[in-house]
Design a protein around this nucleic acid. Structure first.
Lengths: 163, 163
DNA sequence: CGAATTTCTCTCGCTGAGCGAGATAGTATC
DNA sequence: GATACTATCTCGCTCAGCGAGAGAAATTCG
């Protein structure tokens, strides 16, 4: 989030622990974005492609079937953009298109090993880093972090709904 | 980060508190990105423009002068892309170009009120939400959250440096 | 059942963000 | 004052993503 210089309107804008945490959080997301963009470039992907892979891997992990429609919606793309996104991923061998046998209009997206490997090569070390940290934390502190992150997420969701 | 299905290679991949926190963190960043993209669209901006405004506002807040070069580097754009980014922001009245009096090659970017207002209108409620939460937290828990976020950042930075 | 409607994906043509290459103008070094 | 360097901008191009709409399969309804 951007700085909030003048105490005007909505929040107590004095530099304090709250704002500081907000800044840290924003920095984390900005840096993760940059990291993802770098990685995508190095692997001949676009940032959107990487986000798509994340969605696909998450879905595969939770056993959910993914169709172009769902994927496009999750990424905020329209159908034309979604088609060309999937074309790219298919061309690179990360994804295969299969007709849904139960609904002939649908296409099911199947993730290739190579996509999982790519995802792991990117996020693996980072995951290790964070998991390592988490494992040294006292349970009470860990619980606090989780509550905090959950709270942030609900805040974001409320914010999005109001549009 | 994407899921890590098989315990292979780098990390203890069993579903556990560590991975769970990683997933929460990833979800936060994904949702923040989507929120930012929505907001950008509604305000006739591109996601990059919003990221640029965040950088500019941060710099203004900390009293740092921003030039096209710095901004482009912070966003991972080349000079041509940076120029057209600033053209867009200038056209929308968020930014003005001023020649640096001390170094005639440089351009200094001055942020307009309208940009600050825009930033606040976007992030304000979210900041309030998080700050509100932070203020109810016992100091020990708050400290844990800050340490955690700091740790994540250093992890990301190390990760980026190795390229 | 067959027609109308809806749902899902893809095609076509276009806009514009961002890239590579290089021009230009100002600064530092000798 | 020539040379090297730095910061920004210009030009031409590629391609991600959009709007509009076509086509095919499913659903609803007379």
């Amino acid at each position: 989030m951007p700085p909030a210089d003048h105490p005007r309107g909505t929040a107590p804008e004095e530099p304090g622990p709250g704002l500081d945490v907000v800044h840290q959080l924003r920095a984390v997301t900005v840096e993760l974005d940059l990291l993802a963009a770098d990685f995508a470039r190095r692997n001949g992907l676009h940032p959107t492609d990487l986000r798509a892979l994340i969605q696909l891997l998450d879905a595969a992990r939770s056993g959910t079937a993914v169709t172009p429609g769902r994927l496009g919606a999750a990424l905020g793309l329209n159908s034309a953009g979604t088609t060309s996104l999937i074309d790219r991923l298919e061309r690179l061998g990360h994804v295969r298109r299969l007709r849904d046998p139960h609904d002939g209009r649908r296409v099911l997206l199947e993730v290739d090993e190579r996509a999982t490997a790519l995802g792991r090569s990117f996020f693996g070390p980072l995951i290790d880093h964070v998991v390592g940290e988490v494992e040294t934390m006292p349970p009470a502190e860990l619980a606090a972090v989780r509550r905090f992150l959950a709270h942030v997420r609900t805040g974001i969701e409320e914010h999005r709904e109001q549009g």
